[in-house]
Nucleic acid binder design. Sequence first.
DNA 1: CGGCTTTGACCTGCGC
DNA 2: GCGCAGGTCAAAGCCG
Length: 290
Amino acid sequence: MDRTSAAITIDLNTNPMHNPTDHDHDQPPADDLIEEFNRTKSENKKLNDMLTIICRKYIELMQKQSVEELFNSKKRKYDDRENFDRIIGNSSFVHSCCNEWPPKEIKSNVSRVHVRIDPSDSSLVVKDGYQWRKYGQKVTRDNPSPRAYYKCSFAPSCPVKKKVQKSANDPSLLVATYEGQHNHHHPSTPGISVSLLPGVAGASPSPGSTPIGCSGSAASTLDFTDPTICSKMQSAIAATDNTAVQQFFVEQMASSLTRNPSFTAALAAAITGRILDDVSEDNNDSLSNS
DNA sequence: CGGCTTTGACCTGCGC
DNA sequence: GCGCAGGTCAAAGCCG
């Protein structure tokens, strides 16, 4: 069923009290239908707006988390500044979710993926379909759990590296940082280029691990291994009309929301956290004002 | 036996 | 210049 027919179906079902088979006897006035149509249209627009806001809030939250993590680490100042420029320096990135694709951070070949794991699981393994060789492990200052260093061993010349470390705040959360761009196809999806989202695109996490987000983008919520989505995404990127890209992305977000329960849970948690932050800030403000 | 992990040593960049 | 901390190397050990 295509999108148009789906919309028609929705419209036809907006008035459950109306039985279309007895329209000969009880046909509603055309004005009522138009009114109903306008109301549905208005509701659709509101839902679209809500999705856009949710998307933006989610990106801002992930971005805020990334910045906090960067500044929590005193070391590697030049790297931090570099990352900061990637994440924040591009003012367009703030709204990259809805207005620009691909986001600037993805273009810079650094991406971060959060994976939900069993807290008791001490192995720093993120199964993303690629073949990795571990070449080091370090305990970092700002995090008691060790950080594991991996190189992509699927292709000898592949420059991609991966750092995996448990989140300092949430032991059940693995943070995998991908650097570089694979110069080969994803092992499990031959023929699909990974250039759309280096290090993350084409990743197919194991059932035991649940990817719930990618800093700076909702990229990991989109199934880029799906050729249909790939082609649609590329079409949207090719389109010069920014509104079209935005609309497509909102549609993809909606699709992800409906078919990925873990994303729903993560998004709900993120928004709840954000709301609670706002509430606590408001409370602090009111306390300081009184 | 080959590939992978482990782990201590070494390298490098930054702050003081 | 020195110390600190992140990143990398490479030898040793493990495993299928």
